[in-house]
């Protein structure tokens, strides 16, 4: 289980907990190529990527004003809501961590597999839609859509090498620069982007007939 960092607020702690449930424990970076940060600072800070993306994915135009709708905080709240319901119904299989409960919230206090049981409650629409905060209040479609996006962002963020942006990872897209070869690519046996390979093995047929 991850350690709570002093400055980590509820939203950060909740997303960090979700990431740790989807992506396993810190990886062995020993064989990584080039300069690398520690696993705790970047490889496992995908939650920062998720929060950035969620807070920059939805806007609404009201009286010609474009309003940016920050979705990370309410998303963390509905994860907590589902976690409380899971505990109330004794649907959790592992003990709840009291320290995490006090300092990071209900969702983060669940064991990793139980966190996904809590997510499942939301995905199966088993949490009362009238009990959810805006913009999820009585909006099951948005719950499904955003949770799907959040889980997807975990893997796309992690395995696409977002952490390789290093010190520029939270800049706006135009200012991000790839600074190092991400450990996750080493783990996956992916050599990184290439301009080509000597991999040609011929043609099964030379041309098509009509």
């Amino acid at each position: 289980m991850f350690k709570i960092q002093r400055k980590m607020n509820h939203t950060n702690a909740t997303f960090r907990a979700l990431n740790d449930a989807v992506i396993a424990e810190p990886l062995d970076l020993a064989q990584n190529q080039g300069p690398t940060p520690s696993s705790d600072t970047l490889e496992h800070s995908i939650y920062e990527y998720q929060i950035w993306e969620l807070n920059h994915s939805l806007s609404q135009t009201i009286f010609k004003m474009v309003i940016n709708i920050h979705l990370a905080k309410p998303t963390a709240k509905i994860l907590d809501k589902a976690a409380r319901q899971l505990i109330k119904n004794t649907g959790h299989k592992e003990p709840v961590n009291p320290t995490m409960l006090r300092e990071a919230g209900t969702f983060a206090a669940l064991a990793p597999s139980d966190r996904l049981r809590a997510v499942s409650l939301l995905e199966q629409l088993k949490v009362n839609p009238f009990s959810l905060p805006l913009p999820f209040f009585y909006n099951s479609g948005l719950v499904l859509s955003i949770l799907g996006t959040v889980i997807m962002l975990t893997t796309i963020g992690y395995y696409s090498g977002w952490s390789g942006y290093g010190s520029t990872s939270l800049e706006t897209p135009e200012k991000r620069k790839t600074e190092y070869y991400p450990a996750c690519w080493e783990q996956a046996g992916y050599p990184g982007p290439s301009k080509g390979y000597h991999g040609f093995k011929g043609y099964l047929i030379d041309k098509f007939t009509e």
Partner: peptide, 15 residues
């Protein structure tokens, strides 16, 4: 890219 995407309302899992 400092502006958000153009939203679509897709009320189900997917994109």
């Amino acid at each position: 890219r400092s502006q958000n995407t153009w939203n679509r309302n897709i009320p189900q899992v997917g994109f």
